[in-house]
Design a protein around this nucleic acid. Sequence first.
RNA 1: GGCCCCGUCGUCUAGCGGCCUAGGACUCUGGCUUCUCAAGCCAGCUACGCGGGUUCGAAUCCCGUCGGGGCUACCA
Length: 485
Amino acid sequence: MTRPVKVRFAPSPTGDLHVGNIRTALFGWAYARHTGGTFLFRIEDTDRTRVTDEYIAAAIDTLKWLGLNWDEGPEVGGEHGPYLQSQRLDIYAYWAAKFLEQGDAYHCYCSPEELEATREKQRAANVAPGYDGRCRGLNSAQIAGYQAQGRGATIRMRMGDGETTFTDLIRGDVTFDHKFVPDFVLVRADGSPLYPLAVAVDDILMKVTHVLRGEDLLSSTPRQIRVYQAMGVAEEGYPLFAHLPFVMGQDNAKLSKRNGEVSIAWYREQGYLPEAICNYLALLGWSPGDDRENVSMQEICELFTVEKVHSSPARFDMRKLDAINGDKLRALTPAEFLQWSLPFLTRAGVISGTDDEIALVKKALPIIQERIIKLNEIPAMLRFLFVKEFSVELDCVSKVNDAPSKEVLTRSIKELEPLTAWTHDCIEAALRSALIDEMGLKPRIAFTALRIATTGSTISPPLFESMELLGKTAALARISAALAL
RNA sequence: GGCCCCGUCGUCUAGCGGCCUAGGACUCUGGCUUCUCAAGCCAGCUACGCGGGUUCGAAUCCCGUCGGGGCUACCA
């Protein structure tokens, strides 16, 4: 009860970390920080046919990028390592042997085919499918017989009669009758450990106090508890469980690849800020309790408690994420915004990174900061400032090459040419008096032609600021060029 | 099928017996502002799955029902 809080995040990286994983990580991290406890990061790679080194490295990178730092785990180490399950095989072997010796577990010689056949029969007979326990009480002659056949054996945990009740921090008391929890495999026939063994052993050995995980694991909890018992752990030593509801896709199905983008790597490439992702995810199944929605990482830590997490699933809504990302982007200081923007501009080939370019970017960013919702929109908005071969968007050409537009452009050149101070105020003043006051044009009409001529599109950052940034020579050259279209 | 979990606007949520003719946010619609696009401001639409109880009183408690989801592996 008085144990210091230690929350663990233990993904099995069989692919890029996705939205659901990250929300679990975020909640665990926030809870650890909230309580002043420890956040432990462990990699569950007992199934090395599905978990790769690349995915593990990516998972570590993603967590770091999001700012979900861990106190124990890969790279930082800790007193209960190693933190990759594939490096802890001897530990699992030790406990499996011990369970066998204690009679908590037994060898099962059934082949996968036989087990499948049994399940088939159970399904047909409308009985709860599951291991029927046929190897539970094998005598030495039967064992010798199986061994003579050269059959491999798995190690199975004996569940025994009765029921298991545990208190889920989110759902309250949950009870499972052992009739519906068949004896389960701890160790494969090839000797490798399975999740139910590894997860339980590690959580105990690593002194984990809080297990936050997806609700898909809810019904496997009695099996973990069974392992704790076999390890001789007293109930006070069990971790507390909190099974988080799912994050669903738009169509009410579990979020998946074909159901919107789930990989955090994708969001990173699109230009979502880590803080926006975490803020949005924090609101999925949890709320600060008041009407606050824009919360910082620090506020999340201060306010987060598992008890306030919902028990019902939440739908992932990218439009809300967009709204939050826009808010976060607008709240960035100029220096921060510049740092986030530069990689997107260079990657898109808009700039190569020279000092002159960066200086211009720095001047241009303020006028687009409130106009974007994702960083990957920046290159398109600023490209016109850097292109050598300027061109006008195809569907805009017809809007500048008509007679009225040409008149606007011609007059503009005449007005701009003599300007000595090339600032947006001066440009605007000159153009307004000529085009609006003297020619009597509506601003919308007059400036559209100029906008296309200078930026190449009908949608752009503010016109006069854009012209200023472009510089007098280039701006006039473009207007002249547009006249020739 | 069995076991388990879940059910407030389209979506995320506030609500934990009276403050609810149900609040906020996103989306959407209309308006203001306006050099385009945004941003900002104002207004509007829309919800307690259903049926029984308990109670003076229920979104809030209980039961049932319907609906959704998970598990039912030598995956996790």
